[in-house]
Simulated scan of single mutants.
Amino acid sequence: MNRSVALDQKESVEIPLQKKKGLFYYIKQDFLLYLMLLVPIAYIVIFKYAPMYGIQIAFKDYNIFQGVGMSPWNHFDTFKQIFSSPQFFQVVRNTLLLNFLDLLLGFPAPIILAILINELVWKKFKKISQTILYLPHFLSWVIIGGIVAQLLSPTGMLNSLISHMGGQALPFLTNKFAWVATYSLIGVWQNAGWGTILYLAAMTGIDKQLYEAADADGAGRFRKIWHITLPGIRPTIVILLILQLGNIMAINFDRPFNIQNNLVMDYADVISTYVYRVGIQSANFSVGAAVGLFQSVICLIFLVTSNFISRKFGENGIW
């Protein structure tokens, strides 16, 4: 017996160890995949990281003839200027208000819509509904702005119909509070259908046996949604919520710019339109860069904080 053990030990020692595969081995194995990966990497490096060189404009009295490198430093005078401007705090307030309403109304909308679509039994109607709901996402905000003006302006189709029926025209785009509500609801209409894609994809990963067991226990449709569907898509909800909280200070330029008008600028002027007006139209590039940098730093703080809180509550964050 001792001899057989010795033979086994000898045989185990004689087994050659596999060499650790290096980086070039994996590159050679998946050469085409790595080659395809070069395109998005190049895009990120060229259009995301390389422009960071221009951040120093925010700390200089930038002159286009002297260039970024030769323009003199201004010892944070640009930041002192924007932080002493009441208009800057107004656009920050407007940005936070509109983004908070988007979070309050726009974030749960695709979740509810995805659950409703998932509960449909008739597959053909389900596909048609998804297609119709996706369509607004592909419309440019220039087109949507024109549609909104034609429908909701004081002389638009909807107000003309209301007046023809003996009612009083509603100030959808001329009253400040009505404009904020209109802005938020249009955003929900444009983005809700497209936002359902991730949630529907997450629902396909839920084990169907859980629904069958719930049926056997006599659970109704709402019970199954509450105890199976929502917990099943909770990781997706948490990740998307973290990302949206990280963009609480960021706001697209197209949407407010194409819907705003001079009567509601107290609430319609946001950081992106302020940077366009002050930084580009007025050629005050240092102020525009400083406001953009401030916006990015606040977004980073919100992103890190929301991710930290989600990890503390036992959820999977984005890192």
Rank of each mutant, 00 (worst) to 15 (best):
L32S: 15
K80M: 11
T196D: 11
K21C: 12
I46H: 05
A283L: 14
L103C: 01
K126N: 14
V45C: 04
V148P: 03
F177W: 14
Q66A: 15
I186F: 02
S184P: 03
G193F: 08
G279W: 05
A114G: 03
Q66Y: 12
D269Y: 12
A50D: 00
H164A: 15
G218V: 06
R3E: 15
H75G: 07
F88H: 06
Y211F: 14
G246K: 06
L101D: 00
F65T: 13
I55N: 12
A181S: 04
D254H: 03
K208V: 10
R255A: 12
A192I: 04
K10Y: 13
V142L: 13
D8W: 11
K10G: 10
T131H: 02
L173P: 03
G232T: 07
S296L: 10
R255S: 11
N2G: 12
V287I: 11
L38A: 15
L173F: 03
K80E: 12
D207L: 09
A202P: 10
G166C: 01
I27V: 15
D102S: 11
D207I: 09
I15V: 15
V238G: 02
S71T: 08
F47Q: 03
F89T: 05
I248S: 09
V13T: 04
A268T: 01
I41G: 04
Q90C: 05
S12G: 04
I225Q: 02
N262K: 05
L105G: 00
A250E: 11
A290I: 11
G232C: 06
F222L: 13
F31W: 15
M265A: 05
Q295W: 06
P16E: 14
S129M: 12
K123V: 14
Q260E: 09
D77I: 05
L96H: 04
W73V: 14
G54C: 07
Y53L: 10
E14W: 09
Q18F: 13
V142C: 03
A169W: 01
G167R: 02
L116Y: 00
L96W: 05
N247L: 10
P256W: 12
A149Y: 04
K19N: 14
F76D: 03
G232E: 04
N258T: 10
N252E: 13
S140C: 07
K19Q: 14
A214M: 11
R223S: 12
I41D: 05
P136G: 05
T155D: 07
L158I: 15
S153N: 08
P231W: 06
D266A: 10
L104E: 01
Y274F: 15
T174H: 02
V68Q: 11
G292S: 13
V91R: 02
F24E: 09
L152E: 02
L103R: 00
P16D: 14
A6L: 10
T229S: 13
I82G: 01
T131W: 03
A192L: 04
L32M: 15
D207Q: 09
I44C: 07
C299Q: 06
W319F: 13
S163K: 08
I147Y: 01
W73F: 14
F125L: 14
A50K: 10
W141D: 05
I117Q: 07
T196N: 10
S163G: 00
G187D: 02
M203Q: 11
I55Y: 14
K48W: 07
P16C: 14
A214F: 06
K19M: 13
L38R: 09
L293C: 12
P171N: 05
V39H: 09
S12Q: 13
V39T: 13
